[in-house]
Amino acid sequence: MHITLVDDSIPFDGYTASARPLGGAEKAFAALPGALARRGHTVAVYNRCRWSMFIEGAQWETFEGRRPLTTDVLIAFRKPALLEFVRQARKRVLWHTIPGRFLDRKDARAMLDNHKPLVLLCSEAQAVDWKARGLAVGLLPPALKSDFLNPAQVELAEVPRAIVTSHPRHGLDWLVDLWVERIHPAVPAAELHIHSMALAAAAEGGGIEPALESLAAKVFAASAQNVRVERPQGDHLMAQAFQQAWLHLYPGHPDDSTAFTLMESQAAGCPAVIRPLGAAPERVADGRSAYVAPDSDAFANLASTILGNPSVRASLSAEARALYGGRTWDAAAERLEAFLA
């Protein structure tokens, strides 16, 4: 099949995630073309990449480049308006990575009703507040790159370390309070490493948006409780960071309909304590690879227990790795083919 994927967001390509931090949705978009090409398809990708290039068997073109007149399958990423990117397509797919309710906006619904695409979701959480109303729907949970599935082995940090990768607006204020008041007093040697580009820039003397100023002040004041701010890295180094960490603390958010970094940390063998929000519970095996905490007390107690017990951490780590064994993009491409048949 001739498959065309199109995205109209930020500049990136199939190599970007290896060199610098990239959002989970963008990483998914960058990984699927090569997997489809390996399965024998002719794959063209159009996005805001800087120039044309051939990556893992797929042809990447700039968004303004000459688009094909026809394609067997058009996969529009996130924006329903992109369903019209190619005039003639045997099948159209909308790959949706944000809450389902956004598809009920008037302009989005008009596009869906007009083209009747297959709507490809990343999690069951996306369907909670959205009705397909006659549209075909498929579930394609994101897969993972070898950086996380088969990472180079690194030693666990000697000092118990928790890692946080969530957006600052996704519960970080609550988590820092919980760390200072409950978790750190229970495990005084433990460290909390917050991976955030915005907070790292502020820590280095740069500016920060007004809405995050009070949070930044709270984070920096918590340095006495071993709270550290780190810059996010590319996939290889982030996989190492997850391996070194004893625990991934994931506060979550109701609109987090993908929980990409939680998948990555689990695949790298990092246990987690999460709240039951958004797609996060779908990404773990509760009680085996991670714990879903029903409230703040449970969250603090579970985090303290894992940070204080290497044997508990080791057991959870083995289960996390096993949970994501085989979750490759090649397997995801095969699953997608079944939807396209």
Results as ranks from 00 to 15, higher is better:
R161V: 13
L307T: 11
G138I: 13
A239N: 06
V6Q: 03
K116W: 02
W51H: 14
S296C: 06
H184C: 13
E204K: 11
A201Q: 14
D286Y: 05
G205F: 12
L277H: 02
V119E: 03
V180N: 07
P254F: 07
L149G: 05
E26Q: 15
W174G: 08
A338Q: 14
A89F: 04
E61A: 13
F54H: 09
D8T: 03
A211D: 13
L120I: 01
S315H: 05
A245G: 02
A19G: 12
L192I: 11
L135P: 11
I55C: 06
S166Q: 06
A322I: 02
W95M: 07
K116M: 10
W95Y: 12
A152G: 05
I306Y: 09
I183K: 04
D286V: 02
D330S: 13
V229K: 00
S223Q: 13
V6I: 15
V86H: 05
T261D: 04
V219K: 10
N301L: 09
F54L: 11
R50Q: 14
D235W: 03
G138C: 12
S311A: 14
A285V: 11
E84Y: 00
M197G: 06
L302I: 15
P254N: 05
L302C: 05
A222S: 14
A285E: 08
V284E: 09
K218Y: 05
V93G: 01
D256R: 08
I3T: 05
V312C: 08
F299Y: 15
L156W: 08
F339L: 15
M53G: 00
K116A: 15
H115Q: 13
F54K: 01
S146R: 14
R38Q: 15
P11T: 10
M238K: 09
E209G: 05
S315N: 04
G234L: 09
A224N: 07
D7L: 06
N150S: 11
L178V: 14
H248Q: 14
V176A: 03
D13F: 01
P251Y: 08
R313Q: 15
A338M: 08
A125Y: 00
T4K: 00
D330V: 13
L112K: 04
D286N: 14
I194L: 11
R67I: 09
A341I: 08
Q243D: 01
G278I: 07
A331N: 13
F299C: 10
R288T: 10
A76P: 02
T165L: 15
R90F: 04
R182I: 07
P271Y: 02
A152Q: 11
V93Q: 01
A200N: 12
R161Q: 15
A186C: 03
P99M: 03
G308S: 07
L69A: 14
S311D: 13
P33Q: 04
S315G: 15
P160W: 12
H195A: 15
G40H: 02
E337Y: 03
L112P: 00
Y250C: 11
L36V: 02
E209N: 05
T70V: 12
